[in-house]
């Protein structure tokens, strides 16, 4: 078992993602370069259960469909750098839009925690969220926290640890589309799987292919070339 592992923080802007990042890592932060070289991401550390958890703060984005550099950076990190756990931070007071991003992450990777932040704010506004039902529906842990008041951190860190040690197995719910899209996915996914050999979710890649996300394919070609020699 490794003594350190990586957790990536994804989320919409204005969800308190930075507050969570700051609260978890304290002042032990630095800006580290990663594979992309040109892009630097804030990185911090937290010790938990005798292990060092490296936390990477991804840019806050509305989606991961590579409409902007920030979105590409966040998406590339999750897909290609493969953090051990991806934490999606959601704003409890505007879950509808926040789920849009969370669902995209669930399509991309397996070890995901849905972290509903600003739960104190939601309480004030009379919003109650059934996280157990959401956990069942999404197939990954859903945890309510308040980064501001530092509540829910123990459960959050424990859950991260349990995913890392394999005590919790994430089985993200598959999002089904209209029959027309599903038919096209069925046409192309087997070919993708043959090609990628499970290194990346073939269903997700199939969807991105259908969507015509050429920046992803440039990225894939670049990385495959690097791997090949």
């Amino acid at each position: 078992m490794k003594n350190s592992y990586t957790v990536a923080l994804a989320g919409n802007p204005n969800t308190g993602k930075s507050t969570l990042f700051n609260a978890l890592t304290g002042l032990k932060q630095h800006t580290g370069n990663w594979a992309g070289k040109t892009v630097s991401l804030a990185e911090g550390k937290v010790e938990h259960k005798g292990k060092t958890v490296r936390i990477i703060d991804l840019p806050g984005t509305y989606s991961l469909f590579s409409n902007s550099t920030d979105e590409e950076v966040a998406r590339n990190y999750i897909v290609f750098e493969k953090p051990d756990v991806t934490l999606v931070v959601l704003d409890a007071t505007s879950l509808e839009r926040n789920f849009n991003l969370a669902l995209q992450v669930l399509e991309m990777t397996t070890n995901v925690i849905i972290c509903i932040n600003l739960i104190d704010e939601a309480d004030k506004q009379g919003i109650s969220i059934n996280e157990k039902a959401l956990t069942r529906k999404l197939g990954v842990p859903v945890i309510k926290i308040s980064a501001r008041n530092k509540t829910g951190f123990t459960l959050l860190l424990d859950t991260i640890d349990r995913i890392h040690t394999g005590k919790i197995v994430c089985t993200p719910e598959i999002i089904f589309y209209d029959e027309e899209i599903e038919r096209k996915i069925r046409q192309i996914e087997p070919l993708v799987r043959e090609y990628l050999e499970d290194s990346i979710s073939s269903r997700w890649v199939a969807l991105r292919l259908l969507d015509g996300d050429d920046s992803l394919f440039q990225q894939m070609e670049k990385r495959l070339l690097v791997k090949g020699g």
């Binding site: 879950l95 509808e96 506004q125 919003i127 109650s128 969220i129 996280e131 039902a133 529906k137 999404l138």
Partner: peptide, 10 residues
């Protein structure tokens, strides 16, 4: 997801 798991009291 919101309809089934989130209740708005106000």
């Amino acid at each position: 997801l919101c309809e089934s798991s989130v209740i708005h009291k106000n």
